[in-house]
Design a protein around this nucleic acid. Sequence first.
DNA 1: GCCGTTTTCGGCCCGACTGTTTTCAGTCG
Length: 572
Amino acid sequence: MGKGLSNSEIAAVFSEIADILDLKNDNVFKIRAYRRAAQLIEGFEKPLSEVPDLEELPGIGRELAEKIWTLLKGEKLATLEKLRKEIEPGLLELLKIRGLGPKRVRTLNEKLGVKDLESFKQAVAGPEILELPGWGQKLVDDLKKSLGEFQKYSQRSRLDVAKVQAEEVVEWLKGAQGIERIEPAGSLRRRAETIGDIDILVTGKDANAVMEKFVGYPKVREVLSRGKTKSAVVLDSGIQVDVRFLEPESFGAGLHYFTGSKTHNIALRTLAKHKGLKISEYGVFRGAKRVAGRSEEEIYKLFGMDFIAPELREDRGELEAARTHKLPKLIELKDLKGDLQAHSEWTDGRNPISEIAARAKELGYAYIAMTDHSKSQRQAGGLSGGEMLKEWAEIDGLNRKLKGITILKGVELDILKDGGLDLPEKVLRQADIVLGSIHGNFNLSRAEQSARVLKAFSTGRVHVFAHPSTRLIGEREPIELDWEKIAPVMAKMKVAAEINASPHRLDVNGETAKYLKEQGLVFAISTDAHSLVGLQDMEYGVYTARRGWLEAQDVINTWGLSKLQKWLRERR
DNA sequence: GCCGTTTTCGGCCCGACTGTTTTCAGTCG
């Protein structure tokens, strides 16, 4: 592993600089430039070290490019070191508390000597805070509440958790009078892997009725704001939900605006400006005249663009592709003809193979791969070569009996620390499909980790690289992998990249998938189900694939059984 | 700090909501 910083680490440096500048009340546009750069870098699909000319990136000029080079060399950034000395380090954390921005934090610091979470806690409890101009009892009470929430719920929610709660709120709101359309927007609509707040847009005849209905939702723990067109609440679960009411002629514009992403919106807005148009959440305007806004299609059309699916709206080239009519025809759930990772009671799954196969058939699949663990996964009941052969014999028997579904004889094979395979090749040769997975030694360096998987793939026995990064969302960081080196070998050895559909994993993620597709790889979207319910997670894998610009043909389990089998055998 | 088919200087996205105010500051998205 080199000492240079990764993209997300560089993004974090720029975010920190922006925060400190904010606290120092520096030039807002300079601050915006740093934040914009941080966002760009965070979502950038390949390592910045491989970008020949950083200044070509939008929002990166000479100074930021130089700073990036410094960080890539593993050197410290003088700017940041200097700025850090100019403020109390504990103040940065306070900015994350709802209701506390740079101005208030600065006031607290200057007038009351607040320097971190602890001293802030004391300040809101004491009497002096109420003497500050503009600080009343209500504000202080609100800040106390946000402080409590910050300590309890500082993380974002997983996509599946947020989606279910949003759907419940939508159902409830449909009971309000005069509702015409209701649509969740925001990162949830873009199917991002984690969700901050849930945004729901509504249009109809009676805004007041909608707001009244919303704040009366039984699972509301607290109403944060209640206005004519916008209200916000916190649910019992801790998730914040915002509801906005829009007039029908503005609904498309509002939906677009609140779906984001922010960078996508800014890019489109900039384009609009060049055409003498102004975009807001109420529509697209030429002067005072609204020229579009009822639907999103209408807005994109105005700019000569095809409709851009929400999953693509991350400012990763979608506007240009829409303008030149080169957007991908994104994969859909109905394109899937099978599931390529599932576990049975032979190892750590809950159900017998027969039940899983029956459910797969109900889901409309033509095939399902049983991929129980290999022997190193002791805690999961991993199988030895002999036991694996017995499981496959059971599958042979089931396949002779079953109609309308084919069970593939698979294995989720551990890639050992040294890159060795966890079962003998002569056993693996009898499998229909072999998934290679990492389940331990997560902390190897980038070089060691990459060499490990490359050695495993060089055997030619692995068909799919399963949950490559091994990250668990909100729980475990991804391992270090050098995709620049790994992708060409996977392409040559015909190893597909898995998009693990479990909402805990979503691995590979959308950005990586987009990059790997560009390197010529194919993909498997698999649920990794350990129960019958788990088989239904496929939708989350499809969302992730769509965020990676994948089409049906890029995904091997959209193929018919015979085409898939041919691909699986071709390497022998 | 970035950027340029009106500019290498002078712009940079902006509206809603709350609280503490009598017209606005701060925060948020």
